[in-house]
Amino acid sequence: MLRSKRTLQSLKYVLLALYSVTTIFPFLWVFLSSFKTNSEIYSSPFALPKTWQFENYSKAWTSGNIGTNFFNSFYITIVSVALILLFGAMASYILARVYPSLALYTFFGLGIMIPGQTILIPTFSILKELHLVNNHTGLILMYVVSSLSLTIFVLVSFMKTLPKELEEAAIVDGAGRYRTFFSIILPLSTPGLATVGILAVLSVWNEYLFAYVLISDPVLKTLTQGIYGMKGEYMTDYGPMTAGLAITMIPVVILYIIFQNKVVAGMTAGAVKG
């Protein structure tokens, strides 16, 4: 009995380990390939690089234009997430604690129920009228709008759990509502803000479709556009291509490893809310 239990236990680990191979292996292959010559990638796909080809990275970064794309994505992500957090927190504060309104809450809920693809064509035509096509501001605007619903859903339920006393004390002490918000509510909401902030970083950094439609000037393109563009040029030259993929993935992987619990909790809450 005990013995069969132990066998079962080992079998469990074998299964768990097998699946983990399928999730790690492709990334490892990309990472190793990004340091190899093309012929090495074909001849010995699973070996360590004989000499580490850092040129692949410089090739991707400069002639593949990934450097420019990287800084564009970085800038767009920072600005979008800052605005998502600010506007989202302001609205959530009212909906959670000042003026709860089911109608408004449902209104924002539409953003989760209706697929983003529905607004692709109208967005393009509206932003074109406003001269915001081929312009980072237009893209940032769309990222803010697409993330607002989920941000508000998660923050409202977070802010509802905050104790009322501190806020009341601040108001009695004569702190205005603005000061109460910025110096009491926002700091208390840090865990909630971190969760939605990381979700927003991931969704903006990883987004492709809106960027593709709204940005065509090579100088303004984002990282996902950049690596897609490399496919045409470097499809037969795996080294720089995989280096470009690694440059896209590494920042997100680092963020994920540092904030793992937040990322998992946020994605789960976000999915369940949606």
Partner: peptide, 21 residues
């Protein structure tokens, strides 16, 4: 004032485009 930025952006760049669609 606090609801305005999120609501207006969402109305103009999400709800209105849905109707346009």
């Amino acid at each position: 004032l606090f609801l305005a930025p999120a609501s207006l952006l969402f109305l103009l760049f999400f709800i209105v485009p849905v109707f346009f669609s």
